[in-house]
C-alpha cells in the first residue's frame, strides 16, 4: 500500500476470516478400517470383480465402479516403490525427511507414509519396510496410529515386482 500525507493510497487487501464447522463421516468401509487400526491391525478390501485389494478401503473399487466388502488383513510390511526427500520444514518434521509410496504386502495399491529410523540417503527403491505403531495404550481409530515405516532386514525387492505400482 502506498500512502502520502495528503491522500491515502488505495486499499489493496482486506482480510475476512471465514470460520465454518463441518462434521465428517468417513463412511462404512473406512469406519471398519479405522476400527481395525484401533485394534492395531491394517485391513484392506478386495474388489469382487478384479480381485485387487485396496488399502485404505473406500467402499468401492474405483477402477471397476463396484462396491467392495471382503475384508483382507495385511501384515504391515511393504516395499518402497518410489519416494521423495523433502528439504523444507513441515509441522512436526525436521528436514530432510523421506515420504515414500509403499505397496503393502497383499495390497494392489500404494499408500504414502513417512520413513524414519534411517538416514535419508540410505532410502532406495525396492527397500523393504514395516509399520511402526504408537503404544498399545495410545491406539485410537486414526491412521496416525502408524507413526511411520522403518527399514527391515530383508533383501530389496526386484524392480520387476514393484515397478508397476506407481
Amino acid at each position: 500500500m502506498s500512502e502520502t500525507a495528503e491522500a491515502p493510497g488505495p486499499v489493496t487487501i482486506v482480510e475476512t476470516p471465514i470460520h465454518l464447522d463441518y462434521k465428517f463421516t468417513p463412511g462404512v468401509a473406512q469406519s471398519r478400517f479405522l476400527r481395525a487400526l484401533e485394534r492395531g491391525e491394517i485391513t484392506g478390501q478386495r474388489c469382487p470383480k478384479c480381485q485387487k485389494v485396496y488399502v485404505p478401503p473406500r467402499g468401492a473399487c474405483s477402477m471397476c465402479g463396484v462396491a467392495t466388502d471382503e475384508e483382507v488383513k495385511l501384515s504391515g510390511k511393504g516395499t518402497i516403490t518410489t519416494f521423495c526427500v523433502t528439504q523444507i520444514p513441515s509441522p512436526g518434521l525436521v528436514p530432510p525427511y523421506v515420504t515414500a509410496w509403499i505397496r503393502l504386502d497383499g495390497s494392489d495399491i500404494t499408500s504414502m507414509f513417512l520413513i524414519q529410523e534411517c538416514d535419508p540417503a540410505e532410502v532406495r527403491l525396492g527397500m523393504r519396510v514395516e509399520a511402526v505403531w504408537v503404544e498399545e495404550s495410545e491406539l485410537v481409530p486414526d491412521l496416525g496410529n502408524i507413526k511411520y515405516f522403518r527399514p527391515i532386514d530383508e533383501p530389496d525387492a526386484e524392480y520387476e515386482t514393484y515397478k508397476d505400482y506407481v
Binding site: F24, G92, L114, D142, L143, G144, N145
Partner: peptide
C-alpha cells in the same frame, strides 16, 4: 480430514 493421520 479427521482420522487420516499426518498426511504429506
Amino acid at each position: 480430514l479427521p482420522f487420516t493421520g499426518g498426511s504429506v
